[in-house]
Design a protein around this nucleic acid. Sequence first.
DNA 1: TATAATCCCGGTACTAGTATCGGAACCATG
DNA 2: CATGGTTCCGATACTAGTACCGGGATTATA
Lengths: 95, 95
Amino acid sequence: MVRLPLNPAEVERGQRLGALLRRARGQRSMLNTALEAGVSPETLRKIETGRVATPAFPTIAAIADVLGLSLDAVWSEINQTAGSAQITVDERLAS
Amino acid sequence: MVRLPLNPAEVERGQRLGALLRRARGQRSMLNTALEAGVSPETLRKIETGRVATPAFPTIAAIADVLGLSLDAVWSEINQTAGSAQITVDERLAS
DNA sequence: TATAATCCCGGTACTAGTATCGGAACCATG
DNA sequence: CATGGTTCCGATACTAGTACCGGGATTATA
């Protein structure tokens, strides 16, 4: 009947998402990245710090666009429950 | 100071998203698709009918997974303001 | 030390998303 | 006609996301 609170798994996935975005941002400033993506710096900060576990699809898509990330790669990486043998976004950035 | 209401462009983009998901679902029932994606049928229905313009990223990702859609393709298709020369999700489904 | 840049945090305010219930319409079957 | 499957809708209820403000901590540089 009501919206269910976020469960721990969703919270952890949100933290993985935030950490991934922060690593992908690298040297760029949070302010510029947020403005370029069309979101407020506060929103980006909350997402990166994991305080917003399930952000809106357009929000993540806009940020991923600015950072040059594939949404499919982001999703597959944060959605996996355990370690995988896939090439991670980090590894792709390093190449 | 407060969360800004959705502007018309965001509403229209949400409608394009819903229409795209509905076309991609094709023959499959809304109920099965929603349950398989782990969302409530009502939520899927609201997204498909465009009544929810900016759904959560995990929600869209889970639905796209079930439907076999690429998140990048979905985003690029609904985010474009005008017609494009790209291969659309529809055309990809038809091939 | 001073100045700027960046990031963090708590508080506040409001809209939006997710979910359930009850009912109704439609269409294809039996 | 009856039954089931699917979709739709309004109402309701609650949490979550987005955004701004003020302040503080850190670092680097002048």
